Computed example of a mutant assay.
Amino acid sequence: MALANLKDIYIDQLQDIFSADTQAEKVTRELAEAASDPKLKKALMAGVEGIEEGRKTLAEIIKSHGEDPTGEFCKGMEGLVKEARSHGIEEEITDADARDAMIITQYQRMAHYGIAGYGCLVAFAKRLGLTEEAHKLQRCLEATADGDRTMTELAEFGINQAAA
Protein backbone atom coordinates (compact mmCIF):
# COMPACT_ATOMS: atom_id res chain seq x y z
CA MET A 1 0.00 0.00 0.00
CA ALA A 2 1.32 3.42 -0.92
CA LEU A 3 1.31 5.85 1.98
CA ALA A 4 -0.32 9.03 0.71
CA ASN A 5 -1.36 10.81 3.89
CA LEU A 6 -1.34 10.74 7.69
CA LYS A 7 -4.24 8.27 7.85
CA ASP A 8 -2.28 5.81 5.70
CA ILE A 9 0.73 6.24 7.97
CA TYR A 10 -1.50 5.78 11.02
CA ILE A 11 -2.89 2.47 9.72
CA ASP A 12 0.60 1.30 8.71
CA GLN A 13 1.96 2.07 12.16
CA LEU A 14 -1.00 0.46 13.92
CA GLN A 15 -0.18 -2.72 11.99
CA ASP A 16 3.52 -2.34 12.78
CA ILE A 17 2.93 -2.10 16.53
CA PHE A 18 0.46 -5.01 16.33
CA SER A 19 3.27 -7.06 14.79
CA ALA A 20 5.75 -5.75 17.37
CA ASP A 21 3.43 -6.73 20.21
CA THR A 22 2.85 -10.17 18.71
CA GLN A 23 6.59 -10.79 18.63
CA ALA A 24 7.25 -9.22 22.04
CA GLU A 25 4.52 -11.27 23.74
CA LYS A 26 6.15 -14.57 22.84
CA VAL A 27 9.67 -13.63 23.90
CA THR A 28 8.42 -11.99 27.09
CA ARG A 29 6.92 -15.35 28.10
CA GLU A 30 10.31 -16.95 27.39
CA LEU A 31 12.08 -14.29 29.47
CA ALA A 32 9.68 -14.95 32.35
CA GLU A 33 10.54 -18.65 32.22
CA ALA A 34 14.26 -17.84 32.25
CA ALA A 35 14.01 -15.35 35.15
CA SER A 36 14.85 -16.54 38.65
CA ASP A 37 13.58 -13.67 40.82
CA PRO A 38 9.89 -14.27 41.68
CA LYS A 39 9.02 -10.56 41.48
CA LEU A 40 10.63 -10.35 38.05
CA LYS A 41 8.74 -13.44 36.84
CA LYS A 42 5.49 -11.89 38.07
CA ALA A 43 6.26 -8.54 36.44
CA LEU A 44 7.11 -10.20 33.13
CA MET A 45 3.87 -12.19 33.16
CA ALA A 46 2.00 -8.95 33.89
CA GLY A 47 3.83 -7.58 30.86
CA VAL A 48 2.53 -10.48 28.77
CA GLU A 49 -1.02 -9.67 29.90
CA GLY A 50 -0.51 -6.00 29.06
CA ILE A 51 0.86 -6.86 25.63
CA GLU A 52 -2.15 -9.12 25.00
CA GLU A 53 -4.50 -6.26 25.92
CA GLY A 54 -2.59 -3.92 23.62
CA ARG A 55 -2.89 -6.40 20.75
CA LYS A 56 -6.65 -6.67 21.31
CA THR A 57 -7.01 -2.89 21.29
CA LEU A 58 -4.88 -2.54 18.16
CA ALA A 59 -6.76 -5.31 16.33
CA GLU A 60 -10.09 -3.67 17.16
CA ILE A 61 -8.92 -0.27 15.91
CA ILE A 62 -7.33 -1.66 12.74
CA LYS A 63 -10.41 -3.72 11.87
CA SER A 64 -12.64 -0.67 12.42
CA HIS A 65 -10.75 0.92 9.51
CA GLY A 66 -11.40 -2.13 7.32
CA GLU A 67 -7.80 -3.33 7.45
CA ASP A 68 -6.07 -6.55 8.49
CA PRO A 69 -4.10 -6.31 11.76
CA THR A 70 -1.42 -8.61 10.30
CA GLY A 71 -0.84 -6.41 7.27
CA GLU A 72 2.66 -5.37 8.35
CA PHE A 73 5.72 -7.14 9.80
CA CYS A 74 7.82 -5.17 12.28
CA LYS A 75 11.49 -5.70 11.48
CA GLY A 76 12.54 -3.38 14.31
CA MET A 77 10.97 -5.61 16.94
CA GLU A 78 12.28 -8.66 15.11
CA GLY A 79 15.80 -7.44 15.87
CA LEU A 80 14.98 -6.62 19.49
CA VAL A 81 13.41 -10.07 19.99
CA LYS A 82 16.48 -11.71 18.48
CA GLU A 83 18.66 -9.74 20.91
CA ALA A 84 16.39 -10.61 23.86
CA ARG A 85 16.66 -14.32 23.10
CA SER A 86 20.38 -14.17 22.43
CA HIS A 87 21.33 -12.15 25.51
CA GLY A 88 18.53 -12.91 27.97
CA ILE A 89 18.00 -16.61 27.37
CA GLU A 90 20.72 -18.25 25.27
CA GLU A 91 23.76 -16.34 26.57
CA GLU A 92 25.89 -18.33 29.00
CA ILE A 93 25.38 -16.33 32.19
CA THR A 94 26.32 -18.36 35.23
CA ASP A 95 24.88 -16.06 37.90
CA ALA A 96 21.06 -16.06 38.16
CA ASP A 97 20.94 -12.46 39.40
CA ALA A 98 23.11 -11.29 36.50
CA ARG A 99 20.78 -13.10 34.08
CA ASP A 100 17.81 -11.34 35.69
CA ALA A 101 19.58 -8.00 35.19
CA MET A 102 20.11 -8.88 31.52
CA ILE A 103 16.47 -9.94 31.16
CA ILE A 104 15.36 -6.55 32.48
CA THR A 105 17.66 -4.83 30.00
CA GLN A 106 16.23 -6.75 27.08
CA TYR A 107 12.61 -6.28 28.18
CA GLN A 108 13.10 -2.54 28.59
CA ARG A 109 14.54 -2.20 25.09
CA MET A 110 11.39 -3.79 23.70
CA ALA A 111 9.21 -1.66 25.98
CA HIS A 112 10.90 1.53 24.79
CA TYR A 113 10.15 0.57 21.19
CA GLY A 114 6.51 0.13 22.20
CA ILE A 115 6.46 3.45 24.05
CA ALA A 116 7.76 5.25 20.96
CA GLY A 117 5.25 3.50 18.71
CA TYR A 118 2.24 4.07 20.91
CA GLY A 119 3.26 7.69 21.48
CA CYS A 120 3.29 8.34 17.73
CA LEU A 121 -0.06 6.57 17.32
CA VAL A 122 -1.67 8.73 20.02
CA ALA A 123 -0.41 11.87 18.28
CA PHE A 124 -1.64 10.65 14.88
CA ALA A 125 -5.07 9.70 16.23
CA LYS A 126 -5.45 13.13 17.87
CA ARG A 127 -4.43 14.94 14.67
CA LEU A 128 -6.89 12.83 12.67
CA GLY A 129 -9.70 13.66 15.13
CA LEU A 130 -10.00 10.04 16.27
CA THR A 131 -10.54 10.94 19.92
CA GLU A 132 -11.82 7.57 21.14
CA GLU A 133 -8.94 5.77 19.44
CA ALA A 134 -6.48 8.26 20.91
CA HIS A 135 -7.81 7.49 24.40
CA LYS A 136 -7.52 3.73 23.86
CA LEU A 137 -3.98 4.09 22.52
CA GLN A 138 -3.07 6.41 25.41
CA ARG A 139 -4.07 3.64 27.83
CA CYS A 140 -1.79 1.24 25.91
CA LEU A 141 1.03 3.78 26.09
CA GLU A 142 0.54 4.23 29.84
CA ALA A 143 0.45 0.48 30.46
CA THR A 144 3.68 0.02 28.51
CA ALA A 145 5.35 2.89 30.39
CA ASP A 146 4.15 1.43 33.71
CA GLY A 147 5.75 -1.91 32.82
CA ASP A 148 8.99 -0.12 32.03
CA ARG A 149 8.90 1.72 35.37
CA THR A 150 8.27 -1.55 37.20
CA MET A 151 11.37 -3.06 35.60
CA THR A 152 13.44 -0.03 36.59
CA GLU A 153 12.27 -0.36 40.20
CA LEU A 154 13.09 -4.09 40.26
CA ALA A 155 16.53 -3.37 38.84
CA GLU A 156 17.38 -0.42 41.06
CA PHE A 157 16.00 -1.80 44.31
CA GLY A 158 17.30 -5.33 44.29
CA ILE A 159 18.28 -7.18 41.14
CA ASN A 160 21.19 -4.96 40.07
CA GLN A 161 22.56 -4.95 43.61
CA ALA A 162 22.34 -8.73 43.82
CA ALA A 163 23.99 -9.05 40.39
CA ALA A 164 26.89 -6.79 41.41
Score class of each variant (00 low, 15 high):
F18D: 08
A2G: 12
L31E: 01
M1C: 14
E25N: 15
A164Y: 13
V81I: 09
L6Y: 06
L40F: 01
L14G: 00
E49Q: 13
G50S: 09
A162E: 12
M151W: 02
G114A: 09
S36C: 07
K126H: 01
D97R: 04
A43H: 01
T152P: 06
A123V: 08
D16S: 10
I51M: 11
I17T: 08
R29T: 09
M102N: 05
I159W: 03
Y107D: 10
Y118K: 02
C140R: 00
A101E: 00
K75F: 06
D21H: 15
A46C: 10
G117N: 02
E49D: 14
M45Q: 13
E72P: 07
L14M: 10
E153Q: 13
Q13N: 14
L44F: 03
I51T: 09
T150Y: 00
A111R: 12
Q13E: 13
P69D: 02
V27E: 03
H87C: 10
D12R: 15
K75A: 11
I9G: 05
F73A: 15
E132C: 11
M151C: 07
D146N: 09
S19T: 13
L154E: 00
N160H: 03
K41Q: 00
D8A: 07
A123W: 01
G119L: 00
I159H: 03
K56G: 14
D97P: 00
M77W: 09
G79Q: 09
K136P: 07
Q13W: 07
M102P: 02
Y113W: 15
K56T: 10
D68I: 08
G66C: 05
R109S: 06
Y10G: 03
M1N: 15
M1L: 13
E142P: 08
R99S: 00
I51S: 08
E90H: 12
E133A: 03
A24E: 13
A164S: 12
H65S: 11
I11W: 01
V48F: 05
T70D: 14
K26C: 09
M45S: 10
E25D: 14
G119C: 07
A111M: 13
A43V: 01
E133D: 03
N160W: 07
D97G: 01
E142A: 11
T57M: 04
D12E: 14
E53T: 14
R29F: 08
E53D: 15
H135T: 15
M1H: 14
D148K: 12
E133M: 03
E83T: 11
E90Y: 11
E132W: 08
T70L: 15
P69L: 06
G47N: 01
A143H: 04
D8G: 05
R149S: 06
A101S: 06
T105P: 04
G79F: 06
R109A: 04
R55F: 07
A59P: 07
I159D: 00
L121K: 05
G117H: 01
K75L: 11
A32M: 01
Q23V: 10
K63F: 08
R109P: 05
E67I: 07
L3W: 10
S19A: 12
C120I: 12
K42T: 02
G147M: 00
A116E: 06
Q106I: 06
I9V: 08
E83S: 07
A24H: 04
L130K: 03
L44Q: 05
Q161S: 14
D146W: 04
D97V: 02
A145Q: 12
K41H: 04
H135S: 15
G119K: 03
T94N: 12
I62V: 03
Y10Q: 03
E132Y: 14
Q23I: 11
Q108N: 12
